[in-house]
Structures are given as structure tokens and as C-alpha cells.
């Protein structure tokens, strides 16, 4: 049996060259002008994270806090908004490869991410907490040393667990439901995620498997809109939009619509819209 033929090698080399080529052409001149000329802002969003970006049960449209923020950016440019649903771990590649203009996708600030992309001013601040089963008897974060902790693949929660509970073993899953199921079935000892996700899960599981969300946050994480690096004009524009939303009080209207009184979350906005400092 012959392992590799000369044409085979040549084909491999061509493929590699092609891939490298497409990566290079992804670079753009001025994004702000491009978007205006195109008449369309392409916003990458999760589509699976209530109340930030999720499918409305009746209209089947993707709606939420993230989506509204993106809409404001599109409105300010006088262009239409196109939403592109993306997976958690695909967020940054989709942006750097130019398939979306902007990310509004539960994107927490981390120094590693800030080396790849630019962050706008923070538009949300998330408390990263851990949920455990009531049965486990775990009540404090230090009890989790050496335990198995789950998080979503490629999420900042995963990196936070690694950084802050270094002795814990991380087991990551593709989606919230798998990670949650692993916790219910005792395959892992805790689930690290944004408090809002955990609160919702705890409500749903109250009857069958009582869960506890550990009071103390593992870490606090400001979320920004994700922008390609070096697009200064676009970044300034987006930050301008966010600042204006804050000064006009419009941000509170949007916030309370999705997260305020009358929603399942019932929280008040207690963070400023400002530059994220690493």
C-alpha cells in the first residue's frame, strides 16, 4: 500500500496555500465606510442566551438585549441590521475572519481576547457564579478545590475557573443543556456561568433536583461589543452610540425591558457604560 503519492502531496500543499490566501484577503480598509456603502450591519449574536439573544417563541425572530444594542448601532449608521447566529467558541474567529462586523454575544472581556479584538465600552456587567446541587452540601467556593467544574466550551467562565480554582478539573460542553445535565447527573460537581443563566436553570430544576447558586461571585466580568482590531473610526462611532444611550437614559429602557422588573430576572442596572480597563 502506497501511503502518499506526489499528486496527493501537491494537492495538500495547494489546499494549505488556498487557506492561507483566504485568511489574508480578510483584511479590510475602512470598516465604517464599508458598512455604510453596503447599507447593512452584520451583527454576530448567540441566539440561544435568554434574555440577551434568543428566539422569540411567537415571532421566531432573534430578540433580546444584545440584539437591541446592535439595532441602536445600525440605526445610528442609517443601515439595516442583519443578525448572524454564531456558536460561543466561534465568536472571535467569525469576527477576525470578517464574516461579521460586530459581536453582541455575551462577550466578556479577557486580556487574551483583547489581544485578538477590540472591545467597545462595557454595555453589561455579568457576575460569574457557580451552581451546585443542594445535595452536595457545597456552600463556598473554596470547597470546590480538586472538584470537577463544568462550563461552556470556549467561554470566559471556563478560563475563569482555570485561573481562579486551579486545582479543579474543567469539563466543557457545547451547550448549556449538556452542562446542566452533567451537573444533575453528578458527573460534575459545579457549573460555572453567568448568574442570569444559573438563576433561570435553578428555577426550572427546583422541583426535581434542587440547586444552589453559591452567593459569592467567582469573578465579575464586563461585556463589550466585539470589534475588529484597528478599526478606529468604527470603534469611536460605536462608543459614541453607547455613551449617548447612557446619557439619554435610553439604556435603562432597553435594560429594564429584558432584565428589569416584570421579567424573570428582576434586576437593576448598577454598572456604568465606560471603557473596559484590563
Amino acid at each position: 500500500m502506497k501511503l502518499l503519492s506526489i499528486p496527493g502531496l501537491a494537492a495538500l500543499a495547494t489546499l494549505a496555500a488556498l487557506l492561507a490566501g483566504t485568511a489574508v484577503t480578510a483584511a479590510k480598509a475602512d470598516q465604517l465606510a464599508d458598512i455604510k456603502a453596503r447599507g447593512k450591519l452584520i451583527c454576530g449574536t448567540l441566539g440561544t442566551a435568554e434574555p440577551f439573544s434568543f428566539q422569540h417563541p411567537q415571532t421566531r425572530q432573534i430578540v433580546g438585549y444584545d440584539v437591541d444594542i446592535c439595532q441602536k448601532v445600525a440605526d445610528s449608521l442609517g443601515v439595516t441590521l442583519e443578525l448572524k447566529p454564531i456558536a460561543v467558541e466561534a465568536r472571535i474567529p467569525e469576527l477576525t475572519q470578517g464574516r461579521v462586523d460586530i459581536l453582541a454575544a455575551n462577550l466578556g472581556y479577557t486580556p487574551e481576547r483583547a489581544q485578538q479584538i477590540d472591545f467597545s465600552y462595557s454595555y453589561f456587567v455579568s457576575q460569574q457564579k457557580l451552581m451546585v446541587t443542594k445535595e452536595s452540601g457545597i456552600t463556598t467556593l473554596d470547597k470546590l478545590a480538586g472538584k470537577k467544574v463544568t462550563a461552556l466550551k470556549g467561554s470566559s467562565s471556563e478560563q475563569g475557573v482555570r485561573r481562579l480554582i486551579p486545582t479543579a478539573e474543567t469539563v466543557t460542553f457545547q451547550d448549556t443543556s449538556s452542562a446542566y445535565l452533567a451537573l444533575v447527573q453528578d458527573k460534575v460537581d459545579a457549573f460555572c456561568a453567568s448568574e442570569l443563566i444559573l438563576v433561570k436553570l435553578r428555577q426550572q430544576s427546583q422541583a426535581k433536583t434542587p440547586m444552589v447558586v453559591i452567593e459569592k461571585s467567582l469573578f465579575v466580568e464586563p461585556w463589550g461589543l466585539g470589534l475588529r482590531r484597528g478599526e478606529t473610526a468604527f470603534k469611536d462611532h460605536v462608543n459614541g452610540v453607547l455613551t449617548k444611550l447612557a446619557s439619554s437614559g435610553e439604556i435603562d429602557t432597553v435594560f429594564s425591558k429584558w432584565l428589569g422588573a416584570g421579567t424573570a430576572f428582576d434586576i437593576k442596572r448598577d454598572f456604568p457604560i465606560e471603557e473596559i480597563k484590563g
Binding site: P93, T96, Q116
Partner: peptide, 27 residues
């Protein structure tokens, strides 16, 4: 990898999500 076994593809995605060197990691 779908059930959290830390085999090669799982580790590759981890490297990718830390370094954002998607092409290199999968190469």
C-alpha cells in the same frame, strides 16, 4: 469531545479558544 473526553479534538479547541490561533491549532 461532545461528552467532555479530553481527546485531541477537544484539546485542540481548547488551545484554539485560548490562543485564537484557529488555523494553526487545527493544522
Amino acid at each position: 469531545m461532545a461528552i467532555g473526553v479530553g481527546e485531541l479534538t477537544y484539546r485542540t479547541r481548547e488551545v484554539e479558544s485560548y490562543t485564537f490561533k484557529t488555523f494553526e491549532a487545527f493544522a
